[in-house]
Design a protein around this nucleic acid. Structure first.
Lengths: 262, 262
DNA sequence: TGCTGTGAAGCGATTCACAGCG
DNA sequence: CGCTGTGAATCGCTTCACAGCA
């Protein structure tokens, strides 16, 4: 999984929906909406589970945390379930969101249709580069970082509570601090850094290079199984410099993912 | 967490590194590389854990699966650990990667520095739109989908085994099938769809709108705690249309995230 | 009869707490 | 003495299996 929280270890479920279940609700919702568009009136747990890519026992258990929304012998009413899950996720209201860091990735996010269609409204695009200020991206004029606090506080009706960080790694923590200070309490972080936030602020992260590294691990594992015995790298490089204590320039492997496209 | 697998429930750890540990190795690696660049020779589990945003017991347990790479009373040798983790993750070799779907997101990925710096080399950018063919993106000429199979098979030295899908949702499964058929065994999917793949192929997914929905859930929860009692949406809309069985156009909430920026 | 809803068992991951070594 | 490495306890999620209802 590409994601994680930073603070609040367990202080999440007030009335008891497990975190793992919450993470799957959007998946169910997507599958249900597709069924709804095809005018399918009801689904069984088996069918819906297949569409969402999970097993049916898990799906039923997940739904049991929300309440008894199914009909025994029949299945679930698609429309009704769409509504219930939307409500549970808080998607019946709309959430203004700011995106900070309008580089390649920030622009891609701004243009991403999946936001608007789920009740997320882009309240502002913010970038630190004065050359970007005023430029049109996804139909919105980019605003300068100076305006950040004002935008967060004054966006109707109650300010902005969700921020997306798509800046270079070095800028992420300062931007995060300013967002939080101005009132943001949920952050989606695309910068390859660990963000430190006060209690009560949620952080989720998406790290592209981490995902690839996890795939590489399994990929290597598969290759190792083919040619059993030589369980190492194929056309590898670099010996194990044990206990050198002294560094060698910048290490055997080079630098960190360092900077985001932004 | 933005991610998940699709096939291979447990068929992963050959010599026993837990999946959860594998997912954290890139995090440790990043923190270690930063230390390495600052010429720090050793770290304690406590310090490194703080830098990686986990607790120290977990970190020590994680490292214990790799072997005994620390020194009691002292800590871990930074350079040595960087090497060991890189090797474990398979980053001592380089992995050619193809990106399919060169829209906003695909282009952002192509420009993302974090790939190249971690041993991932972009072998080709592929798009179905003939108008894109030949265009330069991130220093590479975009190739047409017709060439997909050839690229996967003929890229030296052994073809491409990792594919990134950044196409619209509708194109994702067909593209996935072609990638797999041509020999790709690991896929990173940015399209908001569940991909079906044969046994032995790994899929990880990153879904931007799912992450936001999870944040919205917690955000709503926080708002509900403030104004205890009215545990619902703030300026919400839409009543619960129980058991209508008949659909109402397209449902109370509208459409799915549907299409990616691509 | 067929499918949901759920207690109970199983399993993996996290955390604790301390023995063991440098 | 300090910090790693790890058995044991704990926690939370998943899976099983079936009771219960339409």
């Amino acid at each position: 999984m590409a994601t994680g929280r930073t603070h609040r270890p367990a202080a999440s479920r007030s009335r008891g929906i497990p975190e793992a279940t919450v993470a799957r609700l959007p998946l169910y919702l997507r599958a249900l909406t597709a069924l709804s568009e095809r005018s399918v009136p009801t689904v069984s747990s088996e069918e819906l589970a297949a569409a969402a890519g999970v097993n049916s026992a898990k799906l039923r258990k997940d739904f049991s945390y929300l309440g008894s929304y199914g009909t025994r012998g029949v299945g679930y009413d698609v429309e009704y379930l769409v509504y219930q899950i939307s409500r549970e996720l808080g998607l019946t209201q709309d959430w203004p969101v700011v995106i900070v860091g309008i580089g390649n990735l920030g622009a891609a996010l701004a243009n991403y249709g999946g936001f608007a269609s789920r009740g997320f409204r882009i309240a502002a695009l913010i970038d630190a580069d004065p050359a970007m200020t005023g430029k049109q991206v996804a139909g919105l004029a980019v605003r300068h970082t100076d305006e950040l606090e004002g935008i967060i506080r004054d966006t109707p009706p109650n300010g902005v509570s969700i921020g997306v960080i798509a800046t270079p790694a070095a800028a992420a923590q300062p931007v995060c601090d300013r967002l939080v200070e101005a009132g943001v309490t949920s952050i989606l972080n695309f910068a390859p850094t660990v963000l430190t936030v006060p209690e009560g602020v949620d952080v989720r992260k998406v790290d592209l290079s981490i995902e690839l590294q996890i795939l590489a691990f399994h990929e290597q594992r598969k290759a190792g199984e083919d040619a059993e015995g030589k369980a190492g790298a194929a056309h590898a490089a670099g010996p194990p410099p044990r206990a050198a204590a002294k560094h060698t320039g910048s290490g055997p492997d080079g630098d960190i993912p360092a900077v985001m496209p932004a």
